[in-house]
Design a protein around this nucleic acid. Structure first.
Lengths: 289, 289
DNA sequence: AACAATTACGGAATCCGTAAAAATT
DNA sequence: AATTTTTACGGATTCCGTAATTGTT
């Protein structure tokens, strides 16, 4: 079996181009890298490098090997944290979501045994549960799997804050198509909502702000419309902002603007989670009033 | 990063249960395994074992770690052969198929630069090409990918050999539903055809034979129906058998009984492959007459 | 002359096996 | 008494750094 440190050297070489720079970045000496790559070639029985007296470069096979090694190393590095995460999940409850709303509700339920992940997740939700990376996910879809249960939590409904002097602001509700070609101010990390607005508002432009302070600054000194949901009021930060006299909050009527969220978890964790989920449903209902 | 030999020991321990047996199977001594597992625990910072003076066993986290390590090791072991395979594919053309028929056509085109894989493949065809494990695949579907081209080769059509004294044998063609509840003699390794007949013939039983000799033996001394295709005649082995006076060959009219096959390959290999593919199309047309 | 890769040699770290000890069935 | 795990010690392997060599730009 190929030692991992050889793969690390190979990947680093592809990145830095010369053995000297590779050695520098790995904090070893050139001869070490030279020997390493010679050994790797010998063990694979394949020519990875074109060698000239003072120049060395990857063959196509070498390029391929480096790329393959890259993914292998990523997985190997993830191993330790995966195990630690599993160990934690035996005692603690770890939770993640694919939208900020459910996490706001969760925050109201103070519980030291719950570790929430503030990064919003994406990708293969089933795998995240089956790999025991999270005890419970709050996501906008139930999961269809024998080992997984999905319980409905509540609905998060999008509304748009429009300049009070526009015609749209006076309506009871608007549709996405009414908002076409507008430019919106948007907090970057909104999980699934980004896809929702990008996919449904034709010709819209979005000024994504990764920094909350910047968002606030621009909001205050402009008339760009922005979004909230029925859950935003739960956020202590947003509560200060809701007295926004310049703009009028208008609900959006499209089905995509009303996302149903579910708690998804391995069935064998049902007992441990049911009190928490009930609290979530209660708090969600309160926030919805 | 965790050394792989530690993961090997962990996986072996899960399999064999005691450190002594683990050591035996790995051809090392017990103290080596003891130290290894201690080191692994220390590096992960997680309790993997319940230790008693004379007994050691995996914790739930340990079980999970072993399972995770298992898949990791499998991928690491595949690395070397993957690279070698890529290297070969730079000079040789390696081909696989998901049905025997296309490979029979290929055999008629003698070419030492072509290495065919006699195992029929299944699974993610795109990945097999993108990972450079094969230069070209002959499969019953075109692949929809920017980097992959798919060229139509020809159609393989299933026919069933029925006992001459049955009513069905006298028909011009039959449908799968006509064959319901019958028992068929089938060569085990027929790629996609196995799914086709299993999914389409209601209540059928299949006597799968992995050994060709056994198949022939049973065929000769029974009246079980069996399948061929329009390409079977190309097989030198089958040619001897076609004078089967006991049974009558009848085509099957269902669409699923007529599979269209395509040559799928990375676009950048188009030049190298086009002569071969043209030959395939020619030979296929000849076989079809 | 400066740079890049390679080779040669000696030291250091790591990993392993043998032997012995401790504890259970 | 037989098994199983663990610790202690010494040897062997391997991996690394320094220094010197070769060849190119």
């Amino acid at each position: 079996m190929i030692d991992l440190y050889l793969l690390e050297e190979l990947v680093a070489f592809q990145k830095y181009g010369t053995l000297a720079q590779t050695a520098d970045h790995l904090a070893v000496t050139q001869p070490t890298v030279t020997r390493g790559m010679q050994k790797l070639e010998a063990e694979l029985g394949v020519q990875l490098f074109d060698r000239q007296p003072n120049k060395i470069s990857l063959t196509p096979t070498g390029e391929f090997a480096a790329k393959t090694a890259q993914t292998l190393l990523t997985e190997n590095k993830a191993f330790a944290s995966k195990i630690k995460q599993f160990n934690l999940s035996q005692t603690q409850i770890t939770i993640a979501a694919n939208a900020p709303g459910p996490l706001l509700i969760l925050k109201k339920i103070k519980n030291s045994a719950i570790k929430t992940n503030q990064q919003l997740i994406a990708g293969n939700y089933q795998q995240l549960l089956l790999n025991e990376q999270y005890t419970c996910l709050f996501i906008n879809q139930p999961l269809n799997n024998d080992k997984i249960a999905s319980i409905y939590l509540g609905s998060e409904n999008l509304e748009v804050h429009l300049n009070e002097f526009t015609e749209l602001a006076s309506r009871q509700q608007v549709s996405f198509s009414d908002l076409k070609n507008l430019t919106f101010l948007v907090v970057y990390d909104v999980g699934v909502w980004r896809q929702v607005i990008q996919d449904n508002i034709p010709g819209a432009k979005f000024l994504y702000q990764t920094d909350r302070g910047n968002f606030e600054e621009i909001r205050h000194n402009s008339i760009f419309p922005y979004f909230t949901t029925n859950l935003s009021a739960v956020d202590p930060i947003w509560q200060q902002r809701l007295n926004d006299n310049d703009r009028q909050a208008v609900p959006i009527k499209d089905p995509a603007a009303r996302q149903q969220f579910y708690a998804c978890f391995l069935k064998r964790n049902q007992k441990r989670l049911s009190p928490l989920i009930e609290q979530m449903q209660d708090q969600w209902a309160k926030a919805d009033e």
